[in-house]
């Protein structure tokens, strides 16, 4: 799963031709660790249809602030440069599948 930074967010997420699922996380957040394997599975499962990336909020405060991320993990689905859907906190995989399928 690709790490995206403040500096690469526009290019990797906003200008992406595919929808992008962005996982906002930080190293010491327990629920974030649980979300990671779910994101990795989604990344493989939707290969070629969506992009799955992660943003470390600790190292990338600008984008986190701009998107008003106030809790982690927060998972945001971007399509055509716009945030279309977001989930705060851990969710089972099929909740994310439903969210992605709605926007494919």
């Amino acid at each position: 799963m690709k790490e995206v930074m403040d500096a690469t967010f526009v290019e990797e997420v906003m200008n992406s031709e595919q929808p992008v699922l962005v996982d906002f996380w930080a190293p010491w957040c327990g629920p974030c660790k649980m979300v990671t394997p779910v994101m990795e599975e989604l990344d493989q499962q939707y290969d070629g249809k969506i992009k799955v990336v992660k943003v470390n909020v600790d190292e990338n405060p600008e984008i986190s602030e701009a998107l008003r991320i106030t809790s982690i993990p927060t998972i945001v689905l971007f399509k055509e440069g716009q945030p279309k859907d977001a989930v705060v906190g851990f969710r089972p995989k099929n909740d994310f599948e439903k969210m992605i399928d709605k926007h494919l």
Partner: peptide
């Protein structure tokens, strides 16, 4: 919840 209200202070501290 998730808009300034949280249940895990240690998780969200960097924000």
């Amino acid at each position: 919840l998730g808009k300034g209200v949280g249940y895990c202070a240690t998780c969200d501290a960097p924000i």
